[in-house]
Simulated assay, not measured.
Amino acid sequence: MRVDAVARGLINRDHERDKRYRSRYGITAGTVDQLRARQGYRCAICDRHESQLPRGLAVDHDHATGYVRALLCLTCNTAIGLLEENADVLRAAIHYLLRAEELAASVHNET
C-alpha cells in the first residue's frame, strides 16, 4: 500500500512538471530532460553543472517570440533578463568590465 502511495506521488509530480513546462514554454518535461542531457547538465553560458546550482537549470526563452533557447543557471538567466536580452548592451557591459582596472586606476589617481 505504501509503495502505491509513493508511486502515485511521483506520477503526480511528473504530471505537474510536464503541465508547467507545457503551459509556460510550449514544451514537455521530456524535452527539458533532453536539453539537460544535450548540454551535459550544464548552464549554456557559464558551464556550471546543475549539481552545483541550488535551483538547478532554468528554461531560457526569448520573451518576444516565446521560443526556448537553452537551459541556464539562475544567475545567467537573470543577467540576460536584466540586460533586456540586448546583445549590444551585453557587449557594452563586457567592454566596461575589460576596462575596469583602467577605470579604477583613473578614479584612485585623482584622489
Rank of each mutant, 00 (worst) to 15 (best):
K19V: 11
A87L: 12
D88K: 00
R69K: 09
G81Q: 09
A37Q: 09
I94P: 02
N77V: 05
H61N: 03
T65S: 07
V89Q: 07
S106H: 14
S51F: 15
Y96K: 14
Y96L: 00
Y25Q: 00
C46I: 04
L71I: 14
C76G: 02
R8V: 10
R8G: 02
K19F: 08
E84Y: 05
L97T: 13
V68Q: 03
E102K: 13
L71Y: 02
A100W: 06
S51N: 03
H49W: 09
G40T: 00
E110Q: 12
K19N: 04
Y25P: 01
D60Y: 01
V6P: 00
K19T: 09
R20F: 13
A7M: 15
H63G: 04
R48W: 05
A87D: 15
R42M: 08
R55W: 08
A105S: 08
P54D: 11
H49G: 04
R22Y: 03
S51E: 07
L53M: 09
A37T: 12
Q52S: 10
R48T: 04
L72G: 01
D33Y: 14
L53A: 08
Y21D: 04
E85L: 00
R91A: 00
G81C: 04
H108N: 13
A44H: 06
D62F: 09
T31F: 14
Y96P: 08
C76Y: 00
L98V: 04
H108P: 03
G56W: 13
L83E: 09
G9T: 08
V59F: 09
L90S: 04
